[in-house]
């Protein structure tokens, strides 16, 4: 059931994402975009919809069941719209020349096959660690308790998740507005799975998968001319994840032991995807990443890591291009 839930959590975002990319980048037929872009964009949209439903429920004092209905309703409408957009795009594409994916090229050689096999082995080890490893880092986290309290009381943050008693003094609004526990509660309600299974197994698997997609996009951007170097890149990322497993604060630690936390999803998925989007100058995707982070992590005192990274990388890129241009000019004159 967990694998089936994960499959739905990939296919539905893929539909939403492809539809969204078709609208955001109208000039380019959607077949020219990567599947990985589709899944990640769809994931950002799902988080955004969950955030909107959650915020509405919290500010209007609605029940958790109302929140689930709103979320499903918005998801259904967006999925139907995405399907319609994709159908329209298919008709449009028939009249436009077919664009090749920039990853196309010569057939895979033996080295690339060996790298792919090595990546597969490392990935399976990581997946086994997440599903069977068992140890979760729960310091400072009450996600499962919060989801349990939503499901039992049908209210959002009316009772203290840690004790089960009614709140006397309440909790800060800046934390109440973060939507991940409600999103996980929605998944529990829809799938019938226990919160521990959704939060501690299914969601970390999805985070791991999306993280690999984000790095895969980055690999294609950094080494577009060499599949071999893309393969080395992905294998090294997988190795860092496995090594960081025992090291608190490392990316691998977060993905292996607390892939349900907003701060880990930001570090492992949103930030690499933001870097890839900035390097590709896909500014609309950057905006989606910033908005998704605001739903998951942003505490309203800072402006978020995705915005900082996007602005910083764009500024650094601008300076790099100027320096490159100047040194190219000097070499030419010499």
């Amino acid at each position: 059931m967990i694998f089936f839930l994960c499959l739905c959590m990939v296919l539905l975002p893929l539909l939403l994402g492809r539809g969204a990319l078709c609208l955001l980048y109208r000039k380019r037929p959607v077949r020219g975009t990567l599947l990985s872009d589709g899944v990640l964009t769809g994931y950002l949209i799902v988080v955004g919809l969950a955030g909107a439903a959650h915020m509405g429920a919290v500010l209007l004092g609605q029940s958790f069941s109302d929140n689930v209905r709103w979320f499903l309703g918005m998801l259904g409408v967006c999925a139907a719209a995405a399907a319609a957009v994709l159908l329209w795009d298919r008709r449009r594409e028939r009249s436009a020349p077919r664009q090749q994916d920039f990853r196309g090229g010569p057939p895979i050689n033996a080295k690339e096959r060996a790298l792919f096999f090595a990546f597969l082995v490392l990935s399976l080890l990581q997946l086994m660690r997440i599903v069977l490893g068992g140890e979760r880092y729960l310091e400072g986290d009450m996600t499962v308790e919060a989801v349990n309290s939503f499901l039992i009381t049908d209210d959002i943050y009316k009772i203290n998740p840690l004790t089960g008693e009614w709140y006397q003094a309440g909790m800060p609004l800046r934390l109440k507005l973060l939507c991940l526990p409600t999103l996980y509660g929605d998944l529990c309600r829809l799938s019938g799975l226990e919160p521990e299974q959704v939060v501690w197994v299914a969601v970390p698997m999805l985070t791991w998968f999306c993280s690999n997609l984000a790095y895969w996009i980055l690999a294609g951007q950094l080494f577009p001319e060499s599949r071999e170097r893309q393969g080395f890149f992905m294998n090294l990322v997988a190795l860092f994840y496995l090594l960081g497993d025992t090291v608190y604060g490392a990316d691998g630690f977060g993905v292996m032991h607390s892939g349900f936390r907003g701060i880990v999803i930001r570090a492992a998925v949103l930030l690499p995807y933001t870097v890839g989007a900035v390097l590709r100058r896909r500014w609309k995707l950057v905006v989606l990443c910033i908005a998704a982070e605001a739903c998951m992590v942003w505490t309203f005192y800072g402006l978020g890591a995705c915005l900082f990274t996007a602005v910083g990388l764009a500024a650094a890129g601008f300076v790099w291009e100027r320096l490159r241009g100047r040194s190219g000019g000097k070499e030419a004159s010499a």
Binding site: Y215, L222, R229, F232, M234, F240, D251, R266, A267, A305
Partner: peptide, 16 residues
Amino acid sequence: WSLVPATAMTAACGAV
């Protein structure tokens, strides 16, 4: 350190 793309940069240099 989340603001530093450490994994990506180290992996990129290793890949080169």
